[in-house]
Design a binder for these strands. Structure first.
Length: 905
RNA sequence: GGGUGUGUAGCUCAGUUGGUUAGAGCGUCUCGUUGACAUCGAGGAGGUCAGAGGUUCGAGUCCCCUCACACCCACCA
């Protein structure tokens, strides 16, 4: 009986099975940790929150790499017996989503959507869009095979998360950390909202740089339109040129007639730049604002939220500031106040990170989080932070620094710790209020002069809620614990928080990772996660960012359709290292699709003529090849497990791939054919061989599962041992494939077996080599004589089959027959009669070249071993290994020399 | 201005704490359809590990400098 291989299709067809497999997983309930088998034994929780994708549209390849890595982490942990929870969700992404919907509405013909529709109707549109995006995202996430607990799905703007947001706001307000301040902020005239400092991007561009005569000095500026009311000249305190003028007042002819100006000294002025003197515009520059505050100078707003001049700009009031630049310069020109204009000035323009509109700094009343103010720390009871006591006075900045500095949060790769500290060092108070409509409303209410801050609206009439909404990163910062039910429930929180690892892109470290650390350590007195794993950007094959305009976008949905989710995942994980950008091409995905098919066919072979595909606890090696493959397999388990524990997916995957293809398939499977079909062998050996094939295959499926869950689960169906998703990862301590030989080093494969098997491989390769060299038809069988000191009787069948040999003569003292080619493998000589085929001139050349190489190698080894400082200093095992190499090489030299002498002239 | 990363075969990249004659995939060349797999098999060619110096018995690996590329932060009156 047995399984007929024709029952299983010749090639693995991903699109035929993936959706069914995913449904089966969902049906099994295993994505929810409470449903996992042997729950009581799963003492250790392993939690990851999925970085919630923005509901702005669809997933891209960056999301795919995130899902692939996190799913691998989660599946590995599940198979290792942990209580695994991976929480899905989406992010409302305030500004980004609102901007996207505005764009769509404008495309549909609206001029000013917000104004035309009003808050409520406009928000309805945004919500509808968000729901659609959400559905698309969930669908795509499932296509990737992500084993997320959908029963716990969250949304940054849903009820539970909103409650968490208001609660934290209230806590911070009561602690005096959230305050309302009037200061210069980053204003995006298109979004009509303020932005946090890190939401501002810089773009290089050329702008004219204007030099104006300003009383006794020449000042330079790229923005003449802001200079109307400048009255303060700032120079560096050490600048000798202006030393005597500091503190004096001048009467100066300026844009709208004569003004009174004065000069102050401040280190903010650079002596080398321009004339070394500048005027400041406190209302429209963050830096100037700070200088003004330091020197108690007035702040007068001359540009409003629409980008127009205020009444303070005199004749220009009401006009667009940017558009008026030329007119203003002309006016100064007419007055003879333009010194010169540098047309070739590179300037970095600050723009909105969402819509690339130039930022207009202006003064505005906003809500801020004070990162430098002390508050009384509330320590967690079940996962306290080491080194900070309950009630201790600390600032948010110090808290953020402490948990990373004290290694309570590990960062992979660790070089990003430097980046993180650098960011905190430069951190200013965080502007959390936005003037857009989509988002969490600031939980503050006003009635006349009265202000109420609370989790719920105040009772009584006449209260009006603050019209601002919160920065989207405020709610994202609560993600690890708001998703677990805080502040309402604490069951999940106690089991699953702190989460184990946060996996995300390095580009989001400030926006999100740092904010989560801030929010969680503050609100819970715990770290949000114990580890941070940062992946890089996925670029195209030329290393460019993927973008619509370059038409180089690889859409994961397309590649899943064409090559399968497993191939897509492998291509994203193997060959890339954390923190570094990686390049992706369709060819690469194609080559991994080939591998999924290879694994599929290895399985087809293993299932051939097997009565029952059953899981096996133990197998008995009978032959050299058996001992070799099981020993090698144990080594692979050991190394791959180590890599997986350290999240070294690329190394683990490569090692698995090498073993699966180059050792298990290319060698053991071929040998298995011999062992299975040798009539002379007992049925026992046939069964043993099948057992070993199945034994290794089952465990390879387990180890491949985190990388390619679909194909492995599909093949695993044959084993009739439940679902692969909850199979147990091989445990070398509990149940190793072979008994360990000792501790450390090479404990799974006897040295003699390794050498014997490698010797066998050497002989086969030598024959294949010779055949290829003389272009012997691969189907044609040859007679071969082997002169070897080793006993090869048991390997005759293998050599015959793998090297296509008809008559094999084993004779330690054999002499080379006339007209035979000779090959050397270690101490073994292989003679292959080729009669007239052999071109002895070419043969001699080839052997002489080989000899020359070898002599050089021997020479270098001899030199090395003669060197006393080497033999004295190097570890004994290194030296003895070299001695062995020398012995081997010298033997080969001797044999080769004889061969060459034997050749007819 | 401060910082980080990268530079290894034609291309994409591995290379663990320094220790075989530096590896893989793709591509390329030769030969091949023998019942797991042509999404395949066998074999070959291809590298002064960016350059210079240093430490060491020994450097792709550690240190210093130089060059090239990429990125981050700050600043740009």
């Amino acid at each position: 009986m047995g399984i007929d291989q024709n029952d299983i299709s010749k090639a693995y067809e991903a699109q035929d099975v993936e959706d069914n497999i995913y449904s089966a997983w969902e049906k099994s309930g295993y994505f929810t940790p409470e449903n996992l088998p042997d729950l009581e034994d799963r003492k250790e929780a392993f939690t990851i929150v999925l970085p919630p994708p923005n509901v702005t549209g669809t997933l891209h390849i960056g999301h795919a790499v995130m899902l692939a890595i996190e799913d691998a982490m989660v599946r590995f942990a599940r198979m290792r017996g942990k209580r695994v929870l991976w929480i899905p969700g989406t992010d409302h992404a305030a500004i980004a989503t609102q901007a996207k919907v505005e764009k769509l509405l404008i495309k549909d013909g609206l001029k000013d959507p917000r104004h035309d529709l009003g808050r409520e109707v406009f928000l309805d549109h945004v919500e509808k869009f968000a729901v659609e995006s959400h559905d698309t995202i969930v669908h795509q996430t499932k296509k990737m095979g992500a084993s997320l607990d959908w029963s716990r799905e969250a949304y940054t703007l849903d009820e539970d998360r909103s409650l968490a947001v208001r609660t934290v706001f209230k806590m911070m307000y009561d602690d005096g950390l959230i305050y309302r301040g009037d200061r210069v902020i980053n204003w995006c005239p298109r979004c009509k909202s303020t932005l946090a400092d890190d939401e501002v991007e810089y773009k290089e561009g050329k702008t004219p740089f204007y030099y104006f005569k300003y009383g006794p000095v020449v000042i330079a500026t790229a923005r003449p339109e802001t200079k109307f009311l400048d009255k303060t000249i700032v120079v560096h305190p050490l600048d000798k040129r202006y030393k005597d003028l500091v503190g004096s007042e001048f009467e100066i002819e300026w844009i709208d007639g004569k003004i009174k100006a004065h000069m102050i000294a401040d280190e903010a002025a650079y002596m080398e730049l321009g004339s070394g003197a500048m005027t400041i515009t406190p209302a429209h520059s963050l830096v100037d604002f700070e200088i003004a505050k330091k020197h108690n100078l007035p702040v007068v707003k001359i540009i409003d939220e629409d980008g127009n001049f205020t009444d303070a700009a005199g004749d220009f009031a009401g006009k667009n500031a940017h558009a008026s630049r030329d007119a203003i310069v002309q006016k100064l020109q007419d007055k003879g106040l333009v010194d010169h204009i540098d047309e070739d000035y590179t300037h970095s323009l600050s723009v909105c990170y969402r819509c690339s509109t130039p930022i207009e700094p202006l003064p505005k009343v906003q809500w801020f989080i004070d990162v430098n103010k002390g508050f009384k720390f509330r320590a967690s009871k079940h996962a306290p932070i080491n080194g900070i006591k309950n009630g201790q006075e600390i600032t948010l900045k110090e808290l953020m620094q402490h948990v990373v500095k004290s290694n309570q949060i590990e960062v992979i790769p660790d070089r990003f710790i430097k980046t993180y500290f650098n960011w905190i060092d430069n951190l200013r108070d965080w502007n959390i209020s936005r003037q857009i409509w989509f988002g969490h409303r600031v939980p503050v209410w006003y009635k006349g002069e009265e202000v109420y801050v609370g989790v719920e609206a105040p009772v009584g009439k006449g209260w009006e809620q603050d019209s601002d909404t919160l920065d989207t990163w405020f709610s994202a910062g609560l993600w690890t614990f708001s998703t677990l039910g805080w502040p309402k429930k604490d069951n999940d929180l106690n089991i699953y928080h702190p989460t184990q690892v946060l996996e995300t892109g390095y580009d989001i470290i400030f926006f999100w990772v740092a904010r989560m650390i801030l929010m969680t350590t503050y609100a819970l007195g715990e770290v949000p996660f114990k580890q941070v794993y940062l992946h890089g950007l996925v670029r195209d094959e030329q290393g460019r960012k993927m973008s619509k305009s370059l038409d180089n976008v690889i859409d994961p949905l397309d590649t899943i359709k064409q090559y399968g989710a497993d191939a897509t995942r492998l291509a994203l994980m193997i060959g890339s290292t954390p923190g570094s950008d990686s390049k992706l091409s369709l060819e690469k995905i194609g080559s991994y699709r080939n591998f999924t098919n290879k694994l599929w066919n290895i399985s087809r072979f293993a299932f051939m003529n097997v009565d029952e595909v059953k899981s096996m606890e133990k197998v008995e090696p009978k032959t050299l090849a058996d001992r070799w493959v099981l020993g090698r397999f144990a080594e692979v388990v050991e190394k791959v497990t180590g890599h997986m524990e350290k999240y070294e997916f690329s190394l683990a995957g490569e090692m698995l791939r090498d073993f699966t293809w180059n050792e298990f398939a290319d060698w053991y499977l071929e040998i298995a054919k011999v062992q299975k079909t040798q009539v002379s062998s007992s049925q026992n050996l046939v069964d043993r061989t099948d057992d070993i094939l199945l034994y290794i295959l089952e465990r390879l499926l387990i180890m491949w599962h985190p990388f390619m869950p679909f194909v492995t689960e599909e093949i695993y169906k044959q084993f009739d041992s439940g679902m692969l998703i909850v199979a147990k990862w091989p445990d070398l301590d509990q149940n190793p494939p072979v008994s360990p030989l000792g501790k450390g080093g090479a404990r799974w494969l006897k040295k003699a077996d390794r050498e014997a098997f490698e010797g066998l491989q050497g002989i086969i390769i030598a024959i294949r080599n010779t055949r290829a060299r003389y272009k012997v038809n691969p189907g044609k069988k040859l007679d071969v004589t082997i002169a070897s000191l080793e006993t090869l009787d048991d390997q005759v069948g293998i050599i015959k089959a793998l090297a296509k040999v008809s008559e094999l003569t084993l004779d330690p003292n054999a002499k080379k027959p006339e007209g035979a080619a000779a090959a050397v493998s270690g101490k073994t000589k292989v003679y292959i009669p080729l009669a007239d085929l052999v071109d002895f001139v070419a043969e001699r050349k080839k052997l002489e070249a080989e000899l020359a190489d070898l002599m050089q190698y021997v020479g270098s080894l001899e030199g090395k071993l003669k060197n006393q400082s080497y033999t004295k200093n190097a570890p004994a095992d290194v030296v003895s290994a070299d001695k062995l190499r020398l012995e081997d090489a010298s033997n080969k030299v001797k044999t080769l020399k004889v061969e060459i002498d034997d050749l007819p002239k």
